[in-house]
């Protein structure tokens, strides 16, 4: 029986004004998986991402991390729990007045690590994200992809068990996105870190996720293995996503991944 590392139970969020952003969300994340969460903008994805580590307190319901309900934790213990859940963001959110090394050191300073131990760990992480040569650079001089690598190194500093990626590739071009996704997959496989990917991009889910949940209109519309949900969508929301987003691109990738060209395929089916 695989370990369930993170659960949301009846999670709802409603802001002072307007309709609920999330309603009754139940998710079970298995340790070691890459779990995707997809939905159109406004579906409540980012709110859910922030509710998972209680950056945003749910209006009702709870999050269980390693079986512990986060709502029961005193502030100090909640800060500690968050250190076991790294997070990266669309806009990277690096400290602009700190060097690359300083950014990676930051979470370890927060956790009161000894300086020498922290520096050694930071260098190891920069090596992991292949930015060792940039440790003294400042974020403003880095490209988007490099900034996200720094953010990943920083999020991994305290060896979290879960890594939350909130639209982490949405500000990046396709090629850089591929690089970041490969790095995430590598982190997942080599370090066994559970990854939760929040995105509006189908391609991201298809490239690295094992399971996916579709968030639609504040609810989880569908949940299951990526292949199943994408090939046999059961709900209207899932069908809309699968059909609207990047069909041509996915077809192309499928063709290329079989070592064929578009012309060959077309001639085989007798179109050309």
């Amino acid at each position: 029986m695989p370990e369930i590392i993170l659960q949301t139970r009846g999670l709802s969020k409603r802001f002072a004004t307007g309709d609920p952003v999330l309603e009754d969300v139940d998710l079970d994340i298995t340790a070691g998986e890459i779990f995707g969460l997809i939905g159109k903008s406004g579906a409540g994805k980012s709110t859910l991402a922030r509710c998972v580590n209680f950056l945003e307190r749910p209006s009702s319901g709870d999050v269980l991390f390693e079986g512990k309900p986060l709502s029961s934790l005193a502030p100090r213990d909640l800060y500690k729990a968050r250190r076991s859940m790294g997070m990266i963001f669309q806009q990277f959110n690096l400290l602009m007045q700190r060097s690359v090394l300083g950014n990676v050191l930051f979470p370890m300073e927060i956790a009161h690590w000894k300086k020498s131990k922290a520096v050694a760990r930071a260098k190891e992480l920069l090596d992991l994200v292949k930015l060792s040569d940039k440790e003294n650079a400042y974020p403003a001089t880095l490209s988007g992809g490099q900034r996200q690598r720094v953010a990943i190194a920083r999020a991994m500093a305290l060896s979290p068990r879960v890594l939350l990626c909130d639209e982490a590739t949405s500000a990046l071009d396709p090629e850089t996105t591929r690089g970041i996704l490969a790095l995430l997959r590598d982190i997942n496989q080599r370090l066994g870190v559970t990854i939760i990917v929040i995105t509006h991009e189908m391609l991201v889910i298809e490239s690295i996720c094992t399971r996916v949940a579709i968030l639609d209109n504040s609810h989880v519309a569908e949940i299951g293995p990526v292949r199943e949900v994408f090939t046999h969508p059961k709900t209207e929301a899932a069908r809309a996503l699968v059909q609207s987003d990047g069909r041509a691109e996915r077809l192309l990738r499928l063709i290329e991944s079989n070592g064929l060209t578009v012309e060959e395929v077309l001639s085989r089916v007798g179109i050309v």
Binding site: R50, N53, L55, L78, Y79, K80, A81, R82, R83, M85, G86, M87, F89, N93, L94, F106, P107, I110, A111, A151, R154, A155, L158, L164
Partner: peptide, 8 residues
Amino acid sequence: QAARSMGA
């Protein structure tokens, strides 16, 4: 927000 997510 990033700092909060790191438990600051």
